[in-house]
Design a protein around this nucleic acid. Structure first.
Lengths: 186, 186
DNA sequence: ATACTTTTTTGATTTAGGTCAAAGGAAACC
DNA sequence: GGTTTCCTTTGACCTAAATCAAAAAAGTAT
């Protein structure tokens, strides 16, 4: 989906507004397995994913990677609290495929927020949408068996489940690769 | 904290705006153990907690209550996606103590959102704050031992941890009452 | 205070899923 | 094409936490 269509799906901008807003984004081509931001850095950009896929992850004390979220085509993506509060990111962001994204800096985003009332609305709606999804995952993780969690994943991200390494999905679901492998076997 | 101070802490409203906004809220006194909304109902109000405490919970298939969140004094509280999307709530909301809240209907809230650009901003900031907290909990739950999860709880809600029944906290943390009791023993 | 209900604690037992280790398979690289 | 490295699968074993059950403690109501 094009950025402008995505924006329209959340808030009824008129053509001029849309043109102005999208002009603040920059297109970037990012190859597979590139980091967009490092743990500890302040996240400077918010991204819209035009093509490809991205994950956020962090390292546990023992050095193990924990995948925290998958960001699919047609969504905003960032290390959210790092971007909005401009503090060090707890996560890495990394492309899982060759990707095309539109990026915008915090300064430009703030400018759009203050210029357009509707842009604030969009920000609010997008945040609530994200909040709903995270709460969903939390419920899935909190009291379900490993198998049920995998089924939640299949329902929530059907396309992703077979496009990324098993180990990433396992840690996203709070289980080991071995367990997920056994679940998939049946 | 008074509602107006809370609003000011997020967004710099001027006095007239603040007066108008707070006038749309209604004060309500709600005794302990009252339900503010039922699972399956559309949530009609957003609340600010002036005094007291509230929890959200849902019932698993086997009838067990799972506490999903604790809402403390000085915060907004609602069945968020039910309120904003006006669809059936997945949760109950129930007071844990005699409480005083300020409530506002969806219609009035939408009116304020469209009247004041800054109100949208406030909505966005409050959503992101909530999002950050839920993500925190998710990380705690996803890969930590029962004991570590309890320690997260002590850090995040120090005041709550000893004010509500142990069973509520246990299910909030994704463990049984027995396990939490053993953890507390030492 | 007394009886009744609900919550918490404690102990014994079970089990889902983790850990460790090693073998197959797939990608990536020269 | 053949190494090398990484990823996934499989098996054996172990452990944290669940379940079951029953006693103790704390609340609530009469």
């Amino acid at each position: 989906m094009e950025l402008s269509d995505f924006l329209l799906s959340l808030t009824p901008f008129d053509t001029d507004e849309l043109k102005d807003i999208t002009s603040h984004f920059e297109e970037e081509f990012i190859p597979k397995n590139m980091r967009l931001i490092e743990q500890g850095q302040v996240c400077k950009k918010l991204y819209y994913i035009k093509k490809g896929m991205v994950r956020s992850y962090y390292l546990k004390e023992d050095g193990k990677e924990i995948t925290q979220w998958f960001f699919n085509v047609g969504k905003f993506m960032s290390s959210v609290d790092s971007f909005f509060q401009q503090r060090p990111s707890l996560y890495y962001l990394e492309t899982l495929e060759d990707s095309v994204v539109y990026s915008i800096s915090k300064e430009k985003m703030d400018l759009l927020f203050s210029k357009y009332h509707k842009m604030e609305q969009l920000g609010r709606l997008a945040s609530i949408e994200m909040l709903t999804k995270v709460v969903n995952k939390l419920n899935a993780i909190q009291f379900q068996s490993a198998r049920e969690r995998y089924e939640y994943m299949l329902a929530e991200f059907p396309d992703i489940s077979h496009r990324v390494p098993l180990g990433y999905i396992a840690s996203y679901l709070g289980m080991t690769s071995e367990t997920l492998s056994r679940i998939r076997r049946g």
